[in-house]
């Protein structure tokens, strides 16, 4: 019925929007798609908590830009940027398949030769992880900044990113 168009770059926001700051990655990509006009070769995807099912979207892409909540041990709202091998990729023992996350997906991508040529992860330290749809005030105030950082990242990869008129 539908064939997937060829994308060069995938912008993937991951996280669970039902768990307040855990879903920050999804909030950021939604803001990115709202604020900017993105070229056709860039796919923006709400990865939710899909885990290994996301492998399908890595097929054929060269660049992967990830945004997720990240534990840096620093104060809430602290942002970090990891590149290529700095982004953890491993599979670990878990109790439930629902715990499959980004490191597992990247490990599986390595084993299946789907690991992207270029990988950048933007992470942000969460303040509040509890049942709830809203971000904490600290993180809500950073969504705009992170969306801009993603846009800059995409520009540095040669994509033309213009603000929505």
């Amino acid at each position: 019925m539908f064939e997937r168009p060829a994308f060069k770059t995938l912008v993937l926001g991951v996280g669970n929007k039902l768990m307040s700051d855990e879903g920050v990655g999804v909030h950021v990509i939604e803001r990115l798609a709202e604020k900017f006009k993105l070229p056709e070769e860039v796919q923006v995807l709400d990865g939710g908590t899909l885990g290994l099912d996301l492998l399908y979207y890595l097929e054929g892409i060269e660049n992967l830009l990830l945004v997720d909540a990240a534990d840096t041990g620093k104060e809430a709202g602290t942002m970090i940027r990891l590149q290529d091998e700095q982004v953890p990729a491993f599979m670990s023992i878990k109790i439930s398949p629902h715990q499959i996350g980004v490191p597992d997906m990247l490990a599986a991508a390595k084993m299946k030769d789907l690991y992207p040529k270029r990988l950048v992860l933007w992470g942000i330290q969460p303040d509040l992880i509890t049942l709830g749809l809203d971000l904490s005030p600290v993180l809500a105030s950073k969504v705009e900044i992170l969306a801009d950082k993603l846009a800059d990242e995409l520009r540095s990869w040669g994509h033309e990113i213009l603000p929505v008129a």
Binding site: M19, T72, L121
Partner: peptide
């Protein structure tokens, strides 16, 4: 632990 997974740097 339904769907909570942070990346630990």
């Amino acid at each position: 632990a339904c769907g909570v997974h942070l990346v630990d740097v």
